[in-house]
Every structure is written in C-alpha cells, then in structure tokens.
Simulated scan of single mutants.
Amino acid sequence: MLSVEGLSKVFGGFTAVSDVSFKVDRGEILGLIGPNGSGKSTTFNCIAGHYVPTRGRIAFDGRDITGKPANDICHAGIGRTFQIPRPFHKLTVLENVALAAWFGQNRKVDRTTCWRQAAEALELVGLPRDPHATTEGMGAAALKKLELARALASQPTLLLADESLNGLDPGEMQQAADMLSMIRRERGITIIWVEHIMGVLMRVVDRVVVLNHGAIIYDGNPHGAQENPAVIEVYLGRDAVKHQSGEAHR
C-alpha cells in the first residue's frame, strides 16, 4: 500500500533521515519507533507532506506522492494526527470534526454528509455527538480522541498516528492502543503508528521499524525487536545488552 524507498531529509548540514526504506501492507498496523531524535517524526512528516524529502521516493497505492503538499496527501487517502492536538476552540467538538470531513476528502460532500461522518467518527472514538459540546475542559485523552476523530472524518485508507500515547496515564495508553486496533478492525484502515513508548505499542502492531540516528536498525516482528541487541542498546543502554548476553550464556 505504501512504499518508502531511499528516503533522506537534510536540514542545512544536519541529516535527520538517511536512506530509509520500508513498505506497509494493506490492513497492517506498523509501528515506527525509536528514541527521541531518531528521525521517526521527520520520516512521518515526509510521508504526510509536511516536509519535502531531500532524496528518495514515496509511493501510495502505486502513485508517486513524493514532495506532494499535505492537502494533496490527505485527498489521496492518507489521514494523520498530530502529537499536540490543536482544535479550533471557538468551534464545537462536532464542528471541529465536520470541518475535517468537509475539507479532507477529495470529493464534493454536502453538509448533511459532513455532519453524519463527523458524528460517526466521534462515536467511533468514544466522544459525545452532542452538537453543543465544546473543547473547554477536555483532558489529554479526550483531545487525543478528538484529534483521531478529525483524521478519521477525512475518510482515509491509511492513518498516520503520531505519538498517540504521549501525555496519557497507563490506563489511557491501553485504551488508545485498543482504539487503534478497533479502527483497523471496524474500518479496515491501515495504520502507521509513530511512537517512542514501546510497551503498549508492541502488543498491538503487526510489525515494527526501529530508527536510530535517522537510519533503520530493525524491521520485523515485535517479539524479535524486544530481543534484538541493537534495539535494546538504543532503548536501555549497553549494560542491558551485556546482561542479556550473560543470561543467554548461563
């Protein structure tokens, strides 16, 4: 469904992403993980159209989308959330989502359809469809749900979820992970989940791509990642690798 080939992004003299290549199959949940500064958000933003890659190619459903602007990427069928939700506070919750339905699709839709799609998206993420509900007083978990509802209202076939666990407590993290699984199950949406918190994500994704210093150090199943020395060193340090090696020799 998505193919990233030789992706590189350079800012001035700094190479944030270097020769990154991976593919995403239709119906898959892929975890794109790595420590802070590993290049995952830059990779994500190149796919979403926020950045123009320095080198490389990105193809979606067989079409070259490399360097396309964000609105074209969205209209092609790729929805995204943002790490920090920024709703329109002067609009109601329903209006926030309806706005995404109105502008996010690559087709003309009438107002009735927009309101219906917005209500369906809110119901899917567990937020009230009350047309008078406002964003005032919404906590971190509710704002993450609103961000997800706005992305879903654009009717994507591929969802880019950007650090959906950030700022949540353990219970909310599990709920967010379960919600992404449910969206894949209910809507058949393919998901790339960008995250630096491994624990909850590993129980949900089908495959993980691990980045460090802008390059891929692992691409495979989640269980293998948790036993891979390079991944362990990135997350836990060299002492953890030595400890694991010592346990293996006993």
Score class of each variant (00 low, 15 high):
Cys114Phe: 02
Leu127Ala: 09
Leu160His: 07
Val97Ala: 06
Tyr218Met: 03
Ala248Arg: 15
Ala161His: 02
Gln117Asp: 14
Ala70Tyr: 01
Phe14Val: 15
Glu28Leu: 11
Ala225Ser: 10
Lys40Leu: 00
Glu172Arg: 01
Pro69Leu: 11
His50Phe: 15
Ala151Met: 06
Trp115Met: 14
Thr54Val: 02
Ala101Asn: 11
Glu186Asn: 04
Leu2Thr: 11
Arg80Ser: 05
Ser41Tyr: 07
Pro85Cys: 10
Arg185Met: 05
Val10Asn: 03
Met202Ser: 05
His89Lys: 13
Ala121Tyr: 09
Gly137Gln: 07
Ile33Pro: 00
Arg129Phe: 01
Tyr235Ser: 11
Ile216Lys: 15
Arg26Cys: 02
Gly13His: 14
Glu186Tyr: 09
Val20Met: 06
Glu227Lys: 14
Pro156Gly: 08
Arg111Asp: 14
Ala215Asn: 05
Pro156Ala: 10
Asp219Cys: 10
Gly188Ser: 06
Leu168Ala: 03
Val209Thr: 12
Ala151Val: 09
Ile29Ala: 01
Gly34Phe: 07
His89Tyr: 11
Leu2His: 09
Asp219Phe: 12
Ala59Phe: 02
Leu180Asp: 06
Lys90Tyr: 13
Asp19Gln: 04
Glu163Tyr: 09
Gly37Cys: 05
Ser181Ile: 01
Arg185Thr: 14
Gly137Pro: 04
Pro69Cys: 09
Val97Ser: 05
Val208Cys: 08
Gln83His: 08
Phe82Ser: 06
Pro69Gln: 06
Val241Ser: 08
Leu168Trp: 08
Gly62Tyr: 08
His196Lys: 07
Gly171Gln: 13
Phe14Thr: 14
Pro85Glu: 11
Asn228Ser: 11
Asn221Phe: 11
Gly220Gln: 03
Ile216Val: 15
Phe14Trp: 11
Lys242Pro: 00
Leu2Phe: 07
Lys23Trp: 01
Leu211Phe: 07
Val209Gly: 04
Ala98Tyr: 05
Gly126Tyr: 10
Trp193Val: 07
Thr66Ile: 06
Leu7Gly: 02
Ser41Ile: 06
Gly13Trp: 07
Lys68Met: 12
Ala240Cys: 08
Pro156Thr: 12
Lys23Asp: 15
Ile232Asn: 08
Tyr51Arg: 08
Met173Pro: 00
Leu158Lys: 10
Ile58His: 02
Asn106Pro: 00
Arg111Pro: 00
Gly67Phe: 08
Leu143Glu: 09
Ala119Met: 10
Gln105Asn: 07
Asn71Pro: 00
Pro87Ser: 05
Val52Ala: 11
Phe82Lys: 09
Arg185Ile: 04
Ile232Phe: 08
Ala153Pro: 02
Asn166Gln: 13
His213Met: 13
Gln105Arg: 15
Met202Lys: 04
Asp178Tyr: 06
Val4Glu: 06
Ile232Lys: 12
Ile217Val: 11
Gly137Asn: 05
